[in-house]
Design a protein around this nucleic acid. Structure first.
Lengths: 194, 194, 194, 194
DNA sequence: CATGAATGAGAGTTCATTCAT
DNA sequence: GATGAATGAACTCTCATTCAT
């Protein structure tokens, strides 16, 4: 594939992402993509055979972009609890964001394509986040900020709560207070028991 | 509507439920329903204009059936912790059940129809469950089985974890051990801190 | 299927026949049929899923119509040689007819669908004709008109020559004299050897 | 056209022949050719505008290759009946060969392109074969091997029977016994009447 | 009420053909 | 000469929805 082709493919993926954000996964037709990209019907098929293929590439892009979420904009002297709080704040922002995200499309896609657990993007992201949170908690314990007997369990609990909040926000909407409450509850579990 | 009509409508709803269980919400067409019910195309339109209307009635049915989930098969001398454990076991069974449930259809439906929070079925069920769990925890505290400073917060935490597990099981599959781990973690939070 | 449906199906088959006559088999699209019948796109699909199905029904119709080719318009006192001559004259007429027949479509169809020899229409028709010709030759031998040591072989030879002429006429065109010549040759083989 | 061009054109023709053998004529697209030749889409159009042009060149190639079918591998002292028998055996082999030939493509092509009889390849080949067979029969009469009052008529009869067998084998399949029977019948017509 | 034939819009897909490089 | 990306026309097929019976 030529350089130009790669660029065009990238262009399609980016435009497609917008469409998936707006309409979810199932609703999206090849025609939608064609129109969003302002290319010809046949042209799209040169790059992607169907919305599945396209979405998979959108996901790959997503993953790359997401890989550097942690560890960014974190000042040197931030404490573990600062970092965790920052992470949760970030999650909160996303949960409450009015502009639609790729989340619904991702859910819809994975309802149909329960990929072998191994290379399931969702699992990878979840596990990755659990790992980082666990490390943060351990660091917090070291520094005396946190108290926790089961850091991994706590990390997992946090992530499942976030997942629950996420699906809740997508299906019924949740007020900011609800998110705050859950975050607070979770953080208190780590510090309360002095 | 005549008696016969009511019966037929009920029949359609039940058959439709099976279709939604099998195919989710978005995938289902009026034709699917017609075929599942073995009625005429026109006949279906006498009762429902589209799959949305139908699904809403399926949900109502679901709600009625679900209302008596708690408080069933509970022996007189069961302690609060027994009841809570029973509830969680029930949830676990559903999470791991191989036979598809209405869950995916429900998610897909609510992705599109974020009903005003007021009469949102999902919210109602969630809040209802939180309330019951809170009461159980309080009872457990009374009886000395549990220790917990924020019963409602704990109840909510449990429910969000369950939601997280549910969506996880639908999108990537989760092993039994993962469910057990989360349930255990949650229960220990209630009893550990003596 | 209702009475009206049967009629409409019949109507489609007849119209489709015209299309196949004009365009052969492979060239014909469902759209062609739709336009010839002046019905809606979806309407056609109620009756036939593809051109194959349709063509098979055209063939069935053809077969029924053809079954009474022999034994028609034959006066009582016709001799076997008269009848055979009549048959060959009929074949000649068809071979030379300017108006296109279903032949090309039939060939094209069977190039793709070499049906199990058992229920292959072409084979049936061929064998049927061989049988009748054989009987005629035997009758001619009885009456002293013909002399032939291998009536069945002769009958088969006649039919293969006719097939050869038919495909020749469809692929390169043949002049009347060529047909006459072959028919004459074949007839002389039956009477010459006194 | 440069030397290299001529070679490339030849290469395309040969590859195209394989495609036509496999898929007949109508089914074949320019894309099929491009893929079979592993050249660029535009590249093919430099040499051929459509499948018709291509097929015509395939036919020319075919004709050249075929011209030396007779008179090959024929030992000096072979008698006319030996040679005729050899020819028929060759034809039989082709008729029964399992590997697909160009025949179907040729038929399909000529269904659409009834070329002016003058330069119709099929007619030329047919007439050529008739001529050779006639000469063989005449030689056989000279040598006393054959008896025949109308050598040309007999030659034509043989060729039409072969044509009939050929189309039969392409559209319904014929068993070896059927071919043998027809060949035997034809040969007996030449020698039987002592 | 109930039926199911009929319509037509719209999605998917494939290719012949062109054209800038 | 050669490439292959791009276009757009054409075809297949499926459904939501209507309506005469």
């Amino acid at each position: 594939m030529s350089d130009k082709s790669v660029q065009k493919k990238q262009y399609i993926i980016e435009k497609a992402r917008e469409v998936f954000v707006e309409k979810g996964f199932k609703e999206v037709t090849m025609k939608d993509i064609v129109e969003a990209c302002d290319i010809s019907r046949g042209g799209l098929y040169l790059y992607f055979q169907n919305t599945e293929e396209l979405f998979e590439d959108v996901l790959k892009l997503e993953q790359e972009d997401a890989d550097d979420v942690f560890g960014q904009n974190i000042s040197e002297e931030a404490t573990p609890s600062d970092i965790l709080a920052l992470f949760l704040k970030e999650q909160k922002k996303e949960l409450l964001s009015k502009k639609p995200s790729l989340n619904v499309a991702i859910y819809e896609y994975f309802f149909k394509h329960k990929v072998s657990a191994k290379d399931n993007l969702l699992k990878k992201q979840f596990d990755g986040a659990v790992y980082v949170i666990e490390k943060l908690i351990q660091a917090g314990i070291q520094s005396g900020e946190f108290y926790c007997e089961d850091p991994r369990g706590a990390a997992r609990n946090i992530m499942y709560v976030l997942e629950g909040l996420k699906i809740a926000s997508q299906t019924r909407g949740i007020p900011e207070t609800a998110v705050d409450r859950e975050i607070l509850y979770v953080m208190q579990g780590l510090i309360a028991d002095e």
